[in-house]
Simulated scan of single mutants.
Amino acid sequence: MSVAPAAPVRAADLVVLVQETIRAVTVRYGWETNFGPSVLAGQVGNGRHLHLSLWRDGVNLCGGGEGPSGLRPEAESFLAGILGELPALLAIGAPSPASYLRLAPSRWTGAFQCWGPENREAALRLIPGAPGRAETANAEVKCLDAAASPYLVAGAVLAAGLGGLERGERLPAATAGDPADLGEEQRPARLPSSLTEAVARFQQSEVLRAALGDPLFEAIVEVREAEAALFAGYSPQALANATRRAY
């Protein structure tokens, strides 16, 4: 389900509104809604992807430029910042141990740290937009799920992008097709495959620490470590069963 674009806080509000509306409708009809990242271990789970675009003076900087896939320089730097921080961002955007049951290769989840135009297996997918309509171009962060706070996700992704913009970063070469099908030398790096690994990468992120502040940053670390310890030793299906109704 997609919703219209909005400013960051309003967009997070809309996520909450949509989720609660879905839940209310299903209850009315006697159904059950599960927003947990994994319902059946080993199968495709529930994602909550983030679409975004960067604008200045009414112009969408994600289209109509001469950079990769029509990106303007500022948008390329912004997206490069997000791409570089993705392993750390998972501690916020994929915050449940069950998130990593979902975040597997070849399941449209974006399990590899790469980007590509219209590549649904890339963690950062660029949608160039309709021909002649640069204002419709946007990027999609695919490796997120509904266990995350949409407010923390919006803030953390913005911080990562602004960091890339300040440093003038550039994107690496785009990845075409499923990265899992590439040879080892061509395959981009795998994103963290466990919450413990994601937390370790999060703790190394100076960008996210500066944006969140020490108290919130350390609280996130402690909560994630406690969650990982709580479910240590669970089988994949037991983990899915224990968490799929929690969100």
Score class of each variant (00 low, 15 high):
residue 234 Y to K: 09
residue 67 G to S: 12
residue 191 L to D: 07
residue 132 G to F: 06
residue 26 T to K: 06
residue 174 A to Y: 03
residue 21 T to N: 11
residue 205 S to N: 02
residue 117 P to D: 04
residue 2 S to N: 12
residue 75 A to H: 02
residue 136 T to C: 06
residue 234 Y to C: 15
residue 33 T to K: 01
residue 245 R to T: 08
residue 36 G to A: 01
residue 93 G to V: 04
residue 120 R to N: 10
residue 149 S to A: 00
residue 30 G to H: 13
residue 97 P to A: 05
residue 238 A to M: 10
residue 112 F to V: 03
residue 146 A to D: 03
residue 157 V to Q: 13
residue 221 V to D: 05
residue 145 D to K: 12
residue 246 A to E: 14
residue 92 I to Y: 04
residue 236 P to F: 03
residue 91 A to C: 08
residue 33 T to W: 07
residue 118 E to N: 15
residue 60 N to A: 02
residue 207 V to S: 06
residue 15 V to D: 08
residue 117 P to C: 02
residue 23 R to L: 11
residue 122 A to E: 04
residue 181 D to T: 14
residue 201 R to K: 10
residue 134 A to F: 11
residue 58 G to S: 07
residue 69 S to N: 05
residue 208 L to D: 03
residue 49 H to S: 03
residue 116 G to H: 08
residue 125 R to I: 12
residue 160 A to L: 13
residue 13 D to K: 10
residue 232 A to R: 15
residue 171 L to C: 01
residue 190 R to N: 07
residue 19 Q to M: 09
residue 124 L to I: 04
residue 128 P to G: 12
residue 178 D to V: 05
residue 24 A to F: 00
residue 33 T to M: 12
residue 220 I to E: 05
residue 244 R to Y: 15
residue 122 A to R: 02
residue 157 V to D: 13
residue 19 Q to D: 10
residue 206 E to K: 14
residue 226 A to I: 02
residue 112 F to L: 08
residue 186 Q to K: 15
residue 17 L to A: 11
residue 11 A to W: 10
residue 179 P to C: 09
residue 72 R to M: 07
residue 48 R to W: 08
residue 116 G to L: 05
residue 15 V to I: 06
residue 225 E to H: 09
residue 222 E to N: 09
residue 158 L to H: 02
residue 83 L to Q: 09
residue 192 P to K: 06
residue 186 Q to Y: 00
residue 122 A to T: 03
residue 51 H to E: 08
residue 46 N to A: 05
residue 106 S to N: 14
residue 237 Q to V: 06
residue 104 A to Y: 08
residue 235 S to W: 01
residue 172 P to N: 04
residue 160 A to M: 14
residue 192 P to H: 11
residue 124 L to S: 06
residue 180 A to T: 03
residue 206 E to H: 09
residue 91 A to G: 04
residue 220 I to M: 11
residue 81 G to V: 07
residue 27 V to G: 00
residue 151 Y to C: 11
residue 92 I to W: 01
residue 62 C to F: 06
residue 114 C to F: 01
residue 127 I to M: 15
residue 42 G to P: 03
residue 188 P to Q: 07
residue 128 P to D: 09
residue 224 R to S: 05
residue 99 S to E: 10
residue 207 V to E: 10
residue 132 G to L: 10
residue 123 A to F: 08
residue 247 Y to F: 14
residue 224 R to H: 01
residue 236 P to R: 08
residue 104 A to K: 15
residue 171 L to A: 02
residue 245 R to V: 03
